[in-house]
Amino acid sequence: MTVTLPERTADAGTTSVRKRRTFRPVGFLLALPPVLLILVFVGFPIVLALGFSLGFTGGLNHTVAIIGQNVHESTSGFGTLAAYQEVFSNQRFLTDLGVTVLVTVLATVLVISLALGIGLFLKLRGGRIARLLSGLAIVPLFIPVVISSWAILTFYSGDGFMRSFFAHLGVEFPVWSFTMVAVIIGSVWTSLPFATLMITSGLQAVPDAMIEAARDAGAGFVRIVLSVIVPMAFIPIIIATTFTAIGVVGSFTVPYFLGPNSPNMLGVDMSNYFSSFNQPQQSVVMAFAVFVIASGLAALYVWANFRSAKEQGKA
């Protein structure tokens, strides 16, 4: 990151000429408060936790190390990977890690497919049905996650709507509550609005003329979607994908309410290890495992943004 970053303002071509390469304390100072807040209450605890997970139990980690059970302490100055070794050789953790990844992938694929379908429908055909669909997809944004989890739980439970409805048809519908199916349903349900908003607005931003030019060149529906619309809305799609995946991979409420006791997602495990099992160090190790996955996704997002800047000749 250097000081020669491109102009950020949207209105390129205005008359104002601004100097670059100068240190501008005003902007820096204005931007500082949220950054400091994050540094102190997120960055610092993360560093602290990293130290704790590596067996550094002094300083601010002292209290938690005393309260917690099964804490691996570092005897050398370099820290110890004992906690990591323990967690990563724990079969339950490994299963849950697999489950977490699987749920994340499945939910993300479903969410993005639905959002893309709705967005394309809205873009290419429009009309009342398309608007109805996109409106529907945004509804979950209005509902707190605790409630939606609870609602989904009762809907797919043993005496829920799905079972009742199919019972009238003489079909035995499976109980999905407290299964990973319900977790995926809940994840899709809660993630759909953001992805839909992001993707529909991205698709809407593709100028109609670009699509018409492709039709004029002889492209059919599939080619238009694959060669013009998706590449041109690449950034919003990537943002939607990464945000959805990051949201699901670290989620707690949805798997806590909807999932089985075991196997379940790591968000629930973290909470269990911290409060129920009183093993904070193991909990923190799991947090870092999830963090690594989420960081990879975040990196994809940052890369996509820079790529788009480059493509548009900005960078």
Partner: peptide
């Protein structure tokens, strides 16, 4: 946003 909320609260 990338650091899981639950993990953050623990730390």
């Amino acid at each position: 946003n990338a650091f899981p909320k639950m993990g953050l609260f623990v730390t």
